[in-house]
Design a protein around this nucleic acid. Structure first.
Lengths: 181, 181
DNA sequence: CCGATATACTTAGAATACTAAGTTACGGGA
DNA sequence: TCCCGTAACTTAGTATTCTAAGTATATCGG
């Protein structure tokens, strides 16, 4: 991380620009500098506050995530739902079991393709949107207190860019392991 | 969410500014607009990529979080460790059991205060910092690819502001429930 | 100096998520 | 037509994290 003795200042700067990191590894030893850590704390705090409100309607934070997607698109398959919500299928299976038991969803099969299961909201769950959706908006309001609209948009768009960057990398690794297989 | 027919445009704007939300509740029905959702995806993607590297040294993502803190401050108590890492104490208990079994830490008591347990890294875990810390820097590099240093700092500081806002609210609720109790 | 309160940690039990390895159903060649 | 690869979902087992409630130790007010 330090310039080799013989190298001229200019050369080192060039090399540094070309191949070294934005910050030395020690920098990230402080969690406050780590995007991963910050994202975890944002996610947990947000989630906990939201759940505090939704639990009054017997909806857990995990269930809320599935309901939100179904409010947008009712009657999609389990696989589609998993993708949209960003969870793996086994997670979805377990979550849907809970949602079905609680009377929020029903599952239906077609003869078209007997492998697929379509998920539908019950009337009760549909009605809940009116009550629960504003709770999310409220937490958002709290979370972004004191920020300008522009700052909020900047935050969202920077997070999306991070997500895209990480997804690209994950994609690369998936392709590599396909080649190996 | 729409102006009542009889209200003059100016009046509505004032009312809106005074008491309504930045966006209508429907806006957040799209997960891509939700800071909570975006933070979850950032956190999971980041964590998964990092774990892929650290697992080669038998360190899981969860364990890594504790090690990072101990690299900064060796010999602190369990409670202090929990706070710094941002986890509840039972989580720490379980994690430390794993870390102890894996030979990464030792626990020690004092006669000073026999309730406290101090956590120390083993020489092996100390050495791992040289290998593992750069992995975090590397994921950071990937995550922030194509961003200027300024953009990265903006992202970090906006996330910290969200965390502070949510913590304030949680604090408020805690005080309220203290009053009740 | 004793009892109430607070602190530090632990245990128990549950929710949420994951990976790996099934099962069942579809669909395109040989 | 039948076999093989793929797709959709399920099961099993594990890891991580939480809340609520418990134990042991320390401290402080009367």
């Amino acid at each position: 991380m330090y310039p080799p003795a013989k190298m001229a200042e200019g050369e080192w700067k060039l090399a540094k620009k070309a191949q070294s990191y934005r910050h030395p590894a020690e920098f990230y030893t402080n969690p406050e500098n780590s995007i991963g850590y910050l994202a975890r704390v944002v996610f947990r705090s947000f989630s906990r506050l939201l759940e505090r409100r939704t639990l009054a309607y017997d909806v857990s934070a995990g269930q809320w995530r599935f309901l939100r997607q179904l409010w947008r698109e009712d009657g999609i398959t389990q696989r589609e739902l998993s993708e949209r919500v960003g969870m793996r299928e086994p997670t979805t299976v377990v979550a849907l079991k809970g949602l079905e038991k609680a009377g929020f969803i029903t599952r239906r099969k077609t003869d078209d393709d007997r492998r697929k299961t379509f998920i539908f909201l019950t009337p009760h769950a549909k009605k809940l949107e009116l009550t629960l959706a504003p709770m999310n908006a409220e937490i958002h309001e709290i979370a972004t207190r004191g920020m300008t609209d522009e700052e909020v948009e900047t935050l969202q768009s920077l997070m999306r860019r991070v997500i895209d960057n990480l997804a690209d990398e994950t994609q690369k690794l998936a392709v590599l392991s396909d080649v190996k297989a």
